[in-house]
Design a protein around this nucleic acid. Structure first.
Lengths: 341, 341
DNA sequence: GTGAAAGCGCTAACAG
DNA sequence: CTGTTAGCGCTTTCAC
């Protein structure tokens, strides 16, 4: 078997060519290391000539620091998550960290994926889907690698978390709908065991009952457009129809709107529909969706800050941040007479 | 300064506890290595007790193989690319490789990003956006790390490439529109210097001129919904209007449809609109877009196969694969009388 | 089948 | 500032 990198050039080669010690070349690539300008230039010249680049794997082993962050994510295809991922990798890159992407799904469950990432010596983990098992939590803790959960909270688990105020956002939505005089409120849920879904439903129904209203109807979805479409069908083709519909995310809201129109209903004339997330498409003409905007930049920044801080300061106190969403009023829901929200 | 991983446990610790040599524990984790069952069990037990996991960074250094693949991508937020990324990471994981995500943009240009990835000793690179400079190509070549460009071709560059037959797809679209009796064909382009855009435009106009037609109008976009929306405005609010519109991707087609409706036009009654990609949304009720489906699974599989093969066989012959798209007929374009496409 | 030992490429004391 | 040296944790001959 041939060697893998017959062509790789190491710091020793550079040192030889430059006529300096190997340590000197290491130093030229270590910001802040003490080395004379003259020597540095010689090294750089030799490196240039040989096409030398430091081997980060070796450096990582020696420094015990890989500057790798594991990002675990399911549903990368979902526009909301895709945006999240893009934002994460950008912000991490800005801070000199790199993203090791762990795409979890049925094949690769989180409990299998995480140990793998850990073997790559990731220095931190951001979890954007699924939640950790307690054994995994303690595993990470033992290894001293900080974890922050994004947009999902768990009181039982001793893990950092940053996310949007889902309950609060849902409350704003309920409030708007109530003030506009709606009477029969329906909800299409996301995946039932997601913390996101629980909170959004809770916020919505709580605000409702604060005002003496109860949920008129409820259907289950799974955050996909299709599930919104079919759930709306079940919801709207029965006798008594709701006049306000909150879908646990925008994608389902768009599906629901399409279904409603299919059934000959006007949105918002006959039915007000609101969503959650404010994905790019929510602003499109066809939907013009009233929704809660999750402050993506702030959320991701906060997550990255918590993570990096935990890594670099080695603080181990748990931090939880919840960041308010912003009500974005468009045309998919009837408005109160006097707008003073 | 404290050590980074005070808690990390190495194969030596395991060996000590198990009462075997360090080599034995290494062998335990090396499939095919010769070690007795008895010894292996002892090692496994000790490892379990200590929570030992092999350090892949150290293994990578020793084996000179990281099983890391660099995926460079811009516009992760674009639904088409998001899907691509999801598929890539899944297929790579299935083959035991991990994805190092390089999010390129204005801040981090490709020529800066790539050397970084190379320093991480990625064993291969898939490029889904931008194209390589020749110096980068030779850089990768020297380092013996194979590159495959996804959905972009370049004859000058000596690089592997896998992609959809954009020209062929565009030709099918033109064909369909011609057969349906359209007269005035318009095109909204994607980013002008993308090879994707060039090929789609070329295929479209060539098929047109085969039939004695010329492009009636042309506007430029950048693949975003918004650019389709505004380009359609310029296109449709002038005097002579096109009756058929090909947009370089679905997103722009959806923007164009929304704009057309805004202007009181019927789609496809007054204007047929077709796109390219077949993103999930193209199937949604509001758009029901006739388009070319890029065979995602096949494209990604082929790309991964080419890459992995190049890595594992160390073949260095250039391979180029172009895979046909599939015409998906929906309702956004008028159809020929007799359907026999 | 097994242990000893020599690396992999780089960093970081440690003495000059 | 600089070279020498001892690792980082694992793999892989090489003798036994």
């Amino acid at each position: 078997m041939k060697t893998k990198y017959p062509d790789s050039v190491s710091s020793i080669d550079v040192a030889r060519l430059a006529g300096v010690s190997q340590a000197a070349v290491s130093r030229t690539y270590t910001p802040g290391a003490s080395i004379s300008d003259k020597k540095r230039r010689k090294v750089l010249a030799a490196a240039e000539q040989l096409g030398y680049q430091p081997n980060i794997i070796a450096r990582s082993l020696s420094r015990r620091s890989t500057r790798l962050i594991g990002i675990v994510m399911a549903k990368i295809g979902d526009p909301f998550y895709a945006k999240i991922l893009a934002t994460f990798s950008r912000k991490l890159q800005d801070k000199g960290y790199w993203s090791l992407l762990l795409n979890v799904n049925d094949d690769l469950a989180l409990d299998d994926a995480l140990p793998q990432a850990l073997q790559y010596q990731v220095e931190g983990i951001v979890l954007t889907s699924a939640t950790l098992s307690t054994t995994m939590v303690s595993h990470c803790k033992n290894l001293n690698v900080p974890v922050v959960m994004f947009n999902r909270f768990s009181w039982e688990l001793d893990v950092n978390a940053v996310g949007c105020d889902h309950a609060g956002g849902a409350r704003m939505l309920a409030d708007l709908l109530i003030k506009a005089g709606h009477e029969r409120f329906a909800y299409i849920s996301g995946e039932k065991d997601s913390s996101t879904n629980r909170e959004r439903e809770k916020g919505f129904t709580e605000r409702l009952s604060d005002d003496g209203h109860a949920l008129f109807a409820r259907e289950s979805g799974d955050y996909s457009y299709e599930s919104g479409f079919t759930a709306a069908d079940r919801l709207l083709s029965t006798n008594g129809q709701p006049d306000a519909l909150f879908c646990a995310n925008d994608l389902m809201a768009m599906g629901a709107i399409d279904q409603a129109r299919e059934l000959g209903l006007q949105v918002p004339g006959d039915l007000s529909v609101v969503g959650f997330d404010d994905v790019a498409m929510a602003a499109w003409e066809q939907y013009s969706l009233t929704t809660i905007q999750q402050p993506m930049e702030r959320l991701v920044s906060a997550t990255v800050d918590v993570l990096i801080n935990a890594i670099e300061s080695r603080e181990m106190e748990r931090v939880i941040k919840v960041i308010p969403g912003r009500l974005v009023i468009r045309d998919s829901a009837r408005l109160p007479e006097k707008i003073n929200i």
